[in-house]
Simulated scan of single mutants.
Amino acid sequence: MDSALTAVALPLALAVVMFGLGLSLTPGDFARIARQPKAVVIALLLQLLALPVLCFGLVLAFDPPPLLAVGLLLLAASPGGTTANLFSHLYRGDVALNISLTALNSVIAVVTLPVVTNLAIGFFEPAGGGTLGLQFGKTLQVFAIVLVPVALGMLVRRSAAAFADRMDKPVRILSALVLALVIAGTIVAERDDVGEYLRAVGLPALVFCLCSLGVGFAVPRLLGIGRAQAIASSFEIGVHNSTLAITVAISVLGSVELAVPAAVYGVVMFPVAAVFGWAITRTRTGAGERGDAVPAG
């Protein structure tokens, strides 16, 4: 991929997405975690532990090429993002919980994403693997591209809340466009091998998306979490920040092929999440169930 795109455009695109996330966050979103710890802990355990294990099992079952296998696990380690919040809002999830989980996940991902990616590289040993890996210097890059724009967005919100509120919808739209352009750029860069990549990771990406959404909803419900919170958990776990995964793969690790699973997932997750949201809305049982009301805000 063109070096200007790798060095400037992709990190800038991700910065826009993460800055937009920061505009929607306040310190209270982190404090809110203490008020609903059970829902947060369950969602985090699913995100941080269950998803990588689930993805690893799918990779072993479908046996894609090593670089694509690592790319799938890089995606699994990526947190949710603003798109997860949007889906949760559309399907009456607890958006406040989504925002809290996104904020916390974005911080934790600075540690977990390098760990999961390095373990995957060590296990699958892709060709050229000796040049891959998120060592300390590259981990600092992940820290910078994830947390710095979020912090700047939060500072803007703190000093100009009205401006941040006005910018919320435009930035969400821009974030969706950025994701579409990043996916398109990745596919164009690998256009000669797109058919092969789709055959290798299309089905695993689809199954992983369905499993992530399903586990994210079913497990919290089985453990007594309210419906609105379970919907929030489902989209937080099932709708990953593909822009982050693609940017880390290309700009930090220097591999376009490594970004292909995230690009494929970014295409798959929109219709799958929409159908999943429609399905769980259709099967709703009883509005008076504990925790089914959507909290204000």
Results as ranks from 00 to 15, higher is better:
R157Y: 03
R157W: 02
S159A: 11
A160W: 06
F163E: 01
F163W: 12
A164R: 06
A164G: 09
D165C: 04
D165Q: 12
M167V: 14
P170Y: 04
I173P: 05
I173E: 02
L174G: 14
S175Y: 08
S175Q: 04
S175E: 08
A176M: 14
L177Y: 06
I183Q: 01
A184Q: 06
G185F: 12
G185T: 13
T186S: 10
T186H: 02
V188K: 11
E190R: 14
E190D: 13
R191M: 12
D192F: 06
D192H: 10
D193T: 14
V194Q: 01
G195Y: 04
E196T: 14
Y197C: 07
L198Y: 12
R199N: 12
R199F: 01
V201T: 11
V201C: 08
G202Q: 12
P204G: 08
A205L: 09
C209V: 11
L210M: 11
L210V: 15
C211V: 14
S212E: 11
S212Y: 06
S212C: 08
G214N: 02
G214D: 10
V215K: 01
G216L: 09
F217W: 08
F217C: 02
F217Y: 15
P220N: 09
P220H: 05
R221V: 07
L222E: 02
L222F: 08
L223T: 11
R227C: 07
S233N: 09
S234E: 07
F235H: 05
E236R: 04
I237A: 03
V239S: 03
V239D: 00
A245I: 05
I246L: 02
T247P: 10
V248I: 14
I250Y: 01
I250D: 07
V252H: 07
V252Y: 04
L253S: 06
G254N: 06
V256T: 15
V256C: 00
E257Q: 14
L258K: 11
A259V: 08
A259F: 08
V260I: 15
P261F: 05
P261I: 01
P261G: 10
P261E: 00
P261Q: 05
A262N: 05
A263G: 13
A263R: 02
Y265P: 02
Y265C: 04
G266S: 11
V267L: 15
V267F: 04
V268R: 01
M269F: 11
M269T: 03
M269N: 04
F270L: 15
F270C: 06
P271R: 03
P271V: 13
V272L: 08
A273K: 04
A274G: 12
A274E: 10
V275Y: 01
V275R: 08
F276E: 04
G277R: 05
G277C: 09
G277I: 00
A279G: 10
A279F: 13
I280D: 00
I280W: 00
T281L: 03
T281F: 00
R282A: 14
T283L: 09
T283R: 08
T285M: 05
T285N: 10
G286P: 10
G288V: 00
E289A: 15
